[in-house]
Structure formats: C-alpha cells, structure tokens
Design a binder for these strands. Structure first.
Lengths: 122, 122
DNA sequence: CTAGGACCTGACGTTGACGTCAGAGGCAAG
DNA sequence: CTTGCCTCTGACGTCAACGTCAGGTCCTAG
C-alpha cells in the first residue's frame, strides 16, 4: 500500500510516517519512481510505535528496542533497556493512579461539602 | 521561605517556580525589595502541580482546576472538566498497562525462544 | 492528453515547559 | 564596606514530534 493508505489505516499523519522512517523506526520499499510502498504488517508496526511514544519513549529508545521485537533476540544491554523502560512505565502507572485518586478526592470534596450539602450549581 | 528553599524542598528548579507564577498556578507574597516569599503549604502545592503536569495536563487546564482544589467548590463546568481529566487519566493508565504487558511479552520472547533455549549472552 | 489528486524532498514553523544568560539589585558575614 | 551568594526582570535558546509550505513529480480517470 502507499503512504496515504497506511496513514489512514494506522490513524496517523503522512508526515508522521515519513518522520518514523527518518528516525529508523519504519522501513519502506520504494517503487520505481521513488514512492514508498508498505506491506500489511506495517499497520500494526505503526500502532506499536504510537504505543511506545504514548508511554513516553523517545525515537532513539524505540529505535534501539524495535530490533528486539523484530528479531526476537536481545543482548544483555537491550534486555536491561527493555526492563528499565518497563519499570519506568510501571512507575508511571503508579503515579497516574495516585493522581487519579487525588482528582477523585477533589471531585468528591467539591461536589459535596463536609456538612453534606451539595453545592449550588453556579 | 524564599524561592531557592522552596525549589529545593519541592524538588523543582527556581525557573519552574517563576514559570508557575507566570501561569497563575502559584501565588507569592513579595518582600519590600520585591523578593518572593512563600508559606510552608507551597511545598505541597508545587508537588500537586508537578503531579498534574506529569499526568499530561497543561498549564491552562491546571490553572482552571486549581481554584476548585483551593476553594473546595466547583461549577458544573469545572466538574465536567475534572471528570474529563480523570477519565483521560484512567484511559492513559489502561493504555500504559497494555504497553507494559506488551513489553513484558517482548522481554519473555527475546529472553527465551520458542523452543525453550535461552539466548546467548552477546 | 489533461486535470487533479497523491506523492516526493527539503526546509522552516509550532508548542509547552522550562534552561540559560545578561545586567542589576538585595542581604548576612566578616 | 566588601565579598559572595541569592534574587530580580527580560529575553532568547532548547528539544521532540511533528505541522506546514514550496516547488516539482507521478498516476489514474475521463
């Protein structure tokens, strides 16, 4: 498929796909005239890349880890990196959970006062 | 206390504190000569601000929600905003959990191959 | 064959939360 | 009174993941 179709099917912009290629995250075959051609699995790959970006990984880190996903192999260094990112995400989940609970507190305390009176609506 | 002490106790930079004031997130009394003076509770407030930044809220959103935390009151609009941010964080937690599980998969599959052989270490 | 999308390669613009630097003033110690 | 650290305002720099524009090419429908 061409870049426009991949962009739509993966839910990202054409610009983003070119950027991923520039960062070494996404390879593309080229047609005779130089247009990028992608195989079907590229859709899933782009979604994975998006997941990792959303988890706070940088292009460089993703570029270091994707080969592990592709080849299914890892060096001691990449294993350490994978584990480190995993733990960072775990910590992020924990902090987000605390933040959510804090927001819930705020919601409860502003929606209902200490003496049980619901606040006026404006 | 002065800005340097608050920065150290809250674990942020002096620049960040000035930025928070500029964004209307953190008020400071001023000494005769114009230096900022903070009361003790400012430490907790700064930590809260950091929590919200870490959860992906922008300065503007935080500025809209902090009055609810301060006064303990909320309008229908701010309640909607609070709930919306809470739900967004919930979604973020869910996605991060999927990402972490995906990384765990990768770690398992690269550390141990299908046929049960542990990969060579280099 | 031609109109008009889709695509190409640069290259500069954007945004948010600060970092950093310049130049000037404030403050406790010796 | 001076030394040295802290603080002030103002303003430009940074970084990452793209957005956007310019100028040109490709390709398919009619």
């Amino acid at each position: 498929m061409r870049i426009g179709e991949l962009a739509e099917r993966a839910g990202v912009s054409v610009r983003a796909l070119r950027y991923y290629e520039e960062q070494g995250l996404l390879h593309a075959e080229r047609s005779g005239s130089g247009q990028r051609r992608y195989a079907a699995p590229a859709v899933e790959r782009v979604r994975l890349i998006q997941m990792l970006y959303a988890a706070g990984l940088t292009s460089r880190t993703i570029a270091e880890l994707l080969p592990c996903v592709d080849a299914g192999v890892s060096t001691p260094e990449s294993r350490a990196r994978l584990a480190s990112e995993r733990d960072r995400i775990d910590g992020q989940i924990a902090e987000l959970t605390r933040t959510r609970d804090r927001l819930d507190e705020v919601i409860r305390s502003t929606y209902r006062t200490d003496n049980g009176c619901v606040h006026r609506a404006a």
